[in-house]
Design a binder for these strands. Sequence first.
DNA 1: AGCAAGTATATGGACCAGCTTATATAAGTC
DNA 2: GACTTATATAAGCTGGTCCATATACTTGCT
Lengths: 142, 142
Amino acid sequence: MNAFDVLGDPVRRRILELLADGESTAGRLTDVVRAEFGITQPAVSRHLRVLRESGFADVRSEGRRRLYAVNAEPLQEVDMWLQRYRRFWEGRLDALETEIRRARRQDRVARTPPHPPPPSPESAITRAASPETHDTARLSRL
Amino acid sequence: MNAFDVLGDPVRRRILELLADGESTAGRLTDVVRAEFGITQPAVSRHLRVLRESGFADVRSEGRRRLYAVNAEPLQEVDMWLQRYRRFWEGRLDALETEIRRARRQDRVARTPPHPPPPSPESAITRAASPETHDTARLSRL
DNA sequence: AGCAAGTATATGGACCAGCTTATATAAGTC
DNA sequence: GACTTATATAAGCTGGTCCATATACTTGCT
């Protein structure tokens, strides 16, 4: 299964967003997704399996729980694919540079990579049929 | 239709790759895709329509041809979604910085954004069921 | 051992994306 | 106007993805 196919599903994207904040148990992920998408536990388990098998997530067992974590490798591949299009937007390289500065600032605060920083607001791209919040704003804010 | 759904199809990704080198006629795109994927003209036309309607491509007519071009906006959205994962890979920000330097070098050469720079080698991620060329190499080469 | 909690797998059905064949539209050419 | 080239649309088929229901497995508790 291709990386983009995996990311094509809104549930899987949501799970990955949750995992971006650090490890999580299958149970917690299931609860959130159930609440937001109204699907059953087996359905979520299926998605977790896809994420595992496609390399987007790693699991480890701890007692009777299973802890999931992001594996960024496939995401990096996607990132590299996008590389060829970056020159198309904004002030070309300037935006990237500014982005680095912004990220560095944030980095000083976050420091410990994976663990619940304040829950981020819903991403526009995430929800399936959202009213397209279309925040080009975000980039200029960088 | 969600951005990732659009990119989930290998044919559409290939078309976008071709368009990354600049405008192209529907005919040329069709020929390449037909050769590589063995699908018919109407099938390609369908994909072009999806790209149009999802905002990934713009068209303009010129005589009886239709010229397609990338519209990077949705790709930028994808790029922003990936933002939260960038900290997971490599020397964190260092890779990004190096990337800027590399891009600037290349920028001096390219200068005119859209038009046929040497056809890039097949991307690993592009083909549907490729033997996963897995070129992490590319990143370290940046 | 027996039971509950946590999570995964099996099965069967609905729906949808993408394909092919056939055909339409539009613009040039004779 | 008839014909060709370039591209899009229509109709119908098919396989695969995702879901729910039902069930199995594993670990911890008593």
